[in-house]
Write a protein that binds this DNA or RNA. Structure first.
Lengths: 207, 207
DNA sequence: AAGCCTATGTAGTGAACACTACATACAACG
DNA sequence: CGTTGTATGTAGTGTTCACTACATAGGCTT
């Protein structure tokens, strides 16, 4: 009676699925990507999706982790403890601007933009990931500029968030990087000024 | 047979409804506010809602217009053409930070955050409103700093967007305003430096 | 006071959402 | 070659979304 042959393909590549999800979530944001979008892009059916990833939010977390490992900024290198802040912070801002404006489809920082998700669970996941990056900046500045670590960190974070948001809204690469260079120059100048004011009697590393 | 008495209250105050919607949209963003949320907050039924406002997006636009008129920054005063940029731009940043962090429920700039709505129509409405503010900044800088208007405007816009995003994510008032003061100081210092470099032979307005 | 018209309440519409029950096809293993 | 367990496809679930058809209550004009 039942003459139809139910087709079934071999199990799909789940890591490739994460990569596809990463691109979709980065491009449109968590809320704007539906399960139908995901399953269609992966060419699987919802049950396979849930067998593989558990939920949309869980896949979002895996996608953000993948992003953090493969695409996010190398804070360890950029903010190496022996690097002077007048060099490290401008380098960080410029690297961020370059990354945020590089790919015309994948604009801004996936994790930073994930902070604005409407879904509570997804937003919390993004916050957890963002916090670790924030702590890296704070830890670096606590070491090299303990007297104004908080303000400097806040300034950098606000600028990074502005760069990410502006990138998402279409500000072109050249203008993003120019803003980053400008902000970096401002920071470097500030650090020089404060050095001149307070290091007259301290150990000087200048020639 | 039908013994129930259908209650009906007098027509509701539509401007008050816009104010309620403004608060809801500002607090949660366009996508996260449902029609059920709106009609419940206004204590009306959906047909009254559509008779009064036409659609959710149309009400969002009216709410943003109300915000622009009542709550947004007085760019005309802040960026008065006769005001020196080393004073006007820091004042703009500080006023923004104060506004964005003032009310613990209504954080950030309603229009700036509207730029990130998932709904295409709502986002376009926000873009139209944001563009006029942006043009005010560009027009001011084209007058007072034609040589670097673009870069300065981009820097200010990125900083404003970062302040708004950070405010939405809970950065407290004092830190927001401190970042704004820092960025304002950076700008003022930059403008002084460039003045010293290039205005040796130009008309001086200093005593 | 009579009648009209607007705005209201009741009660839905279809579509999209994240997610799942169930039977089965297939690969792995003996 | 038969058995078994897993991941698949079919076909839904209930919920929520923005939005509306329709009858009527009540304020307004006359």
């Amino acid at each position: 009676m039942n003459t139809k042959t139910r087709q079934r393909r071999p199990a799909f590549d789940r890591e490739a699925g994460v990569a596809i999800a990463q691109a979709l979530f980065h491009e449109r944001g968590y809320d704007a990507v539906s399960l139908a979008d995901l399953t269609q892009a992966m060419d699987i059916k919802p049950p396979s999706f849930y067998a593989a990833y558990g939920s949309k939010a869980a896949l979002f977390e895996r996608a953000m982790l993948r992003y953090a490992q493969e695409n996010a900024l190398p804070l360890d290198e950029l903010l190496a403890p022996d690097r002077p802040p007048a060099e490290a912070l401008p380098a960080l801002l410029l690297a961020a601007a370059e990354q945020y404006g590089q790919d015309s489809m994948l604009r801004g920082c996936m994790i930073t933009e994930g902070l604005r998700a409407d879904d509570r669970v997804a937003r919390q996941m993004a916050e957890n990931l963002a916090t670790s990056g924030l702590q890296a900046i704070r830890a670096y500045l606590d070491q090299v500029r303990p007297q104004d670590a908080q303000t400097l960190a806040d300034y950098v974070v606000v600028t990074l968030r502005g760069l990410s948001a502006s990138a998402c809204n279409g500000m072109p690469y050249e203008r993003l990087t120019e803003v980053a260079r400008t902000a970096g120059r401002f920071i470097a100048r500030e650090l020089e000024v404060e050095s001149e004011e307070s290091t007259a009697a301290s150990v000087s590393s200048n020639p």
